[in-house]
Amino acid sequence: TGEEYIAVGDSTAQQVGDLTFKKGEILLVIEKKPDGWWIAKDAKGNEGLVPRTYLEPYS
C-alpha cells in the first residue's frame, strides 16, 4: 500500500536502485525518506528511488 503520485517530469535512473519514469506516469510511493528521495513502484511493478521534486499528489 502507499500513496499515488503523478510524475511532473521525466527522470532517468542515475545509479542502481533508481527508478526511471516518464512525465504523466502514476507512481505508488511506498516510503518517504527525509533526504528527498522516495521509494516508489510503477505500474509494471518496478521499484526504486525517485526524486520527490518530480512528483505531485494524484487525485
Score class of each variant (00 low, 15 high):
2 G>M: 11
3 E>Y: 09
3 E>M: 10
3 E>P: 06
3 E>H: 09
3 E>C: 14
4 E>S: 11
4 E>V: 14
5 Y>A: 02
5 Y>P: 01
6 I>F: 06
6 I>Y: 07
6 I>S: 03
7 A>N: 01
7 A>S: 05
8 V>L: 12
8 V>W: 05
8 V>M: 10
8 V>R: 08
9 G>M: 15
9 G>R: 15
10 D>F: 04
10 D>N: 09
11 S>F: 15
11 S>Y: 15
11 S>P: 04
12 T>Q: 12
13 A>T: 10
13 A>I: 08
14 Q>W: 11
14 Q>T: 14
14 Q>P: 08
14 Q>L: 13
15 Q>R: 15
15 Q>L: 09
15 Q>I: 10
15 Q>C: 15
16 V>P: 14
17 G>F: 05
17 G>D: 05
17 G>C: 08
17 G>T: 07
17 G>N: 07
17 G>H: 06
18 D>F: 15
18 D>W: 15
19 L>N: 01
19 L>M: 05
19 L>E: 01
20 T>P: 10
20 T>S: 13
20 T>W: 07
21 F>T: 02
21 F>R: 01
21 F>S: 01
21 F>A: 01
22 K>I: 08
22 K>C: 10
22 K>F: 09
22 K>L: 09
23 K>V: 08
23 K>C: 10
23 K>A: 09
24 G>K: 02
24 G>A: 03
25 E>A: 09
26 I>H: 05
26 I>E: 01
26 I>C: 06
26 I>G: 01
26 I>S: 03
27 L>H: 01
27 L>I: 07
27 L>T: 00
29 V>W: 00
30 I>R: 04
30 I>Q: 05
30 I>K: 05
31 E>D: 10
32 K>G: 02
32 K>L: 03
32 K>I: 05
33 K>G: 11
33 K>H: 11
34 P>Y: 09
34 P>F: 09
34 P>I: 09
35 D>W: 03
35 D>S: 07
35 D>C: 07
35 D>N: 10
35 D>V: 02
36 G>E: 05
36 G>F: 04
37 W>H: 09
37 W>Y: 12
37 W>S: 10
38 W>K: 00
38 W>R: 00
39 I>W: 12
39 I>S: 04
39 I>K: 08
39 I>C: 08
39 I>L: 14
40 A>Y: 02
40 A>S: 03
41 K>E: 04
41 K>H: 07
42 D>Y: 00
43 A>N: 10
43 A>V: 09
43 A>F: 08
44 K>H: 13
44 K>D: 11
45 G>T: 01
46 N>W: 04
46 N>D: 06
46 N>E: 07
46 N>T: 07
46 N>G: 05
46 N>S: 06
46 N>C: 07
47 E>A: 08
47 E>T: 15
47 E>K: 11
48 G>D: 00
48 G>P: 00
48 G>S: 02
48 G>K: 02
49 L>W: 10
49 L>Q: 09
49 L>N: 08
49 L>C: 08
50 V>L: 04
51 P>D: 15
51 P>K: 13
52 R>H: 14
53 T>L: 10
53 T>C: 14
53 T>P: 06
54 Y>R: 10
54 Y>S: 14
54 Y>W: 08
54 Y>E: 10
54 Y>Q: 14
55 L>Y: 01
56 E>Y: 06
56 E>I: 11
56 E>V: 11
56 E>W: 06
56 E>Q: 09
57 P>H: 06
57 P>G: 04
57 P>I: 07
58 Y>A: 09
58 Y>P: 05
59 S>P: 13
59 S>W: 12
59 S>H: 13
